[in-house]
Design a protein around this nucleic acid. Sequence first.
DNA 1: CGTGCTCTTGAATAACTTCAAGGGCTGTGG
DNA 2: CCACAGCCCTTGAAGTTATTCAAGAGCACG
Lengths: 183, 183
Amino acid sequence: MESEDRRYGVSFHVPGDFVDLHCFALKRLDHNIDCIGPVRVAQVPHTAIAQVMQEKPHLARLLWFSTLLDAAMHREWIMKLEQLTAPKRIGHIFAEIWRRLEMVGLGYPDGFNTPLTQSDIADMCGATPIHTNRALAELRKQGLADFKRGEVRIADREKLENYSGFTPDYLYGEGELSLREVG
Amino acid sequence: MESEDRRYGVSFHVPGDFVDLHCFALKRLDHNIDCIGPVRVAQVPHTAIAQVMQEKPHLARLLWFSTLLDAAMHREWIMKLEQLTAPKRIGHIFAEIWRRLEMVGLGYPDGFNTPLTQSDIADMCGATPIHTNRALAELRKQGLADFKRGEVRIADREKLENYSGFTPDYLYGEGELSLREVG
DNA sequence: CGTGCTCTTGAATAACTTCAAGGGCTGTGG
DNA sequence: CCACAGCCCTTGAAGTTATTCAAGAGCACG
């Protein structure tokens, strides 16, 4: 809680996400976007969004919905940071990553893989890398999650989610407004 | 960081804010809304929003903008919780409240008044009321801010904002898209 | 004139950071 | 193929920040 120039994470994206649609309406960006793993990017010019907004109200609402999803996730992160200890924060973010990867078909039955390092996780959990390392050891010891160089194995999903106070509601995964419908 | 049923705060509103526009597009609410002080409320039926969205694209974009502002504030809170110690978090939230009250003409040159108690502040800063109390004493001692039963006096704005790592960018107060233009 | 809420203080414990050092894996150049 | 550099992870120990438990003071309202 000292160093001025430490990086901090406010959210993350999985393949398929519309990245930083926010800057379309905000006009200016209040954060940076870093790539951790390899990425494939499609760009959407702002003029195209503006046109879609005008011509297809249903799609406009869908775009709006997608940014509100980001806000809902931000709120959950705020809860996480205000209420949970480091091991629980990490368990919580693991639960979120796993669910979100599954939603785009990239999860496994026993966990997931990620390009994130322990330092990256630390940045997203408001802890030092060292403390994060010890928290990970704790999760491992308790049989909740096993992180090893980007491979995360989770024996019992319910156990981990209960431990971390995670409920997937805020991901709005059931939505009839799901983005995936539009292809 | 222990008790299960503690309340936590993810944001606050000042008079004039469109409260929880999010639930229009999300359909379902992932948080509660508490009134701390006296309030005056105007309700907007969802059907009216839907109609405006369809007929006035410019207004639709304004509504969208207003929810993105909430998301930007969420991000700043995440930074605050990940990076700052309790006294700085409190200084930060004081700076934000002050600015936002000023934007609607409710601030004073030397601070602001608020119905918030120390416990409420604690809920928004992820600290216990006791620790919040000591952090407030620290701010007082350092001449940064003086909280006394809802009256907050700030001698030197710049000093407080520097101390707390606060910059008002994320409030997008200069916007040509400012909500106030529409009346 | 108490009852309840807000605020304050003290002391013991827990959570987290910082400083310091070392181990393990991977890729690269000699 | 080996040596080395660099990153990622791990561990120890001391110090700081925050929580918990406990108790009491100040103020407002009925």
